[in-house]
């Protein structure tokens, strides 16, 4: 076996089965645990069987609740709205970072401040947000933004700064104005990288989203799992967690594919 051979070249079949093995192992281990616990206590709630989880999932997904709402849809919509709103605000972060990277005066005005704000643990501000903005949507979106806004600003700033000065100068010799250089030379070149960073920050955004929802909300994926926790409803919590992961994974993959398809000029750096 060449497990510790640097030059090893596993076959396609070997590569695929290796990739799948840990997933399969987890599923088997879970099924075994669930099975043995249910043999001891058929009413066990902590480790529900797959069929119990499917039942739980179907109930939230396909059956209307007391208010005639499909819960999974309701929760997904509520969370997606908060997530999307935060995402829209990140456009401002990108613009700010771009301007800081291009215009030295703005760099001096904002850089130190942003570096400091970036270090504030956003979750620690949650009580303040609730006091200032109340328990509504504003607080939750504000929390997500406080968490990732400075990161995106600073990342965009660094990317804009990394564009070779020669390109700016060349822009001037080609009769471009300051703003044309900003928007037609610098911005389009950093956009794919900035989108990548935003993509990688999805995880942080979801984290803040769940944190916000867990404390004050009436709907939302994060809200739901904390509500049903009271009834130890693992048959709902686990499918919800999987559902959130699938959503995040899909959003991430779609954006990644779109970047690859859209920015074909990125052949080499």
């Amino acid at each position: 076996m060449g497990f510790f051979k640097i030059t090893a070249r596993p076959s396609r079949a070997a590569a695929w089965s290796l990739s799948a093995s840990l997933f399969v192992l987890c599923v088997i281990a879970y099924a075994y645990t669930a099975h043995s616990r249910h043999k001891e206590n058929p009413k066990d709630k902590v480790v529900p069987t797959f069929s119990e989880m499917w039942d739980g999932f179907s109930r939230t997904a396909f059956e209307p609740d007391r208010n005639d709402e499909y819960r999974l849809l309701l929760d997904s919509k509520a969370s997606a709205k908060r997530f999307g709103l935060s995402l829209a605000f990140l456009v401002l972060a990108v613009l700010l970072g771009l301007y800081m990277g291009v215009f030295p005066y703005l760099e001096h005005l904002f850089l130190r401040f942003m570096l400091f704000v970036d270090k504030i643990p956003a979750l620690a501000l949650l009580p303040i947000l609730f006091i200032v903005f109340g328990l509504g949507e504003t607080s939750k979106v504000a929390l997500i933004l406080l968490g990732v806004f400075p990161t995106i600003v600073l990342d965009t700033y660094l990317r804009a700064k990394a564009i070779p000065k020669q390109q700016t100068i060349k822009g001037f010799t080609l009769a471009a104005s300051d703003f044309e250089i900003t928007y037609r030379i610098v911005l389009p070149q950093i956009i794919p990288g900035v989108l990548d960073t935003i993509r990688l920050n999805f995880k942080a955004m979801i984290l803040f989203l769940i944190a916000g929802e867990s404390l004050a909300a009436s709907a939302g994926l994060g809200y739901r799992i904390f509500v049903v926790r009271r009834y130890i409803a693992m048959d709902i919590i686990i499918p919800y967690v999987i559902w959130m992961s699938v959503l995040a994974f899909t959003a991430d993959a779609l954006l990644r594919l779109w970047i690859e398809k859209r920015y074909t000029w990125r052949g080499e750096s």
Partner: peptide, 24 residues
């Protein structure tokens, strides 16, 4: 760094002419 990597050959060459005639 002699060319703008996000523009095609034609866009690179036309860039100056366009920038001279039109603002953002």
């Amino acid at each position: 760094y002699s060319l703008f990597p996000h523009m095609t050959v034609l866009e690179n060459v036309v860039f100056g002419l366009e920038a001279e005639e039109f603002g953002l």
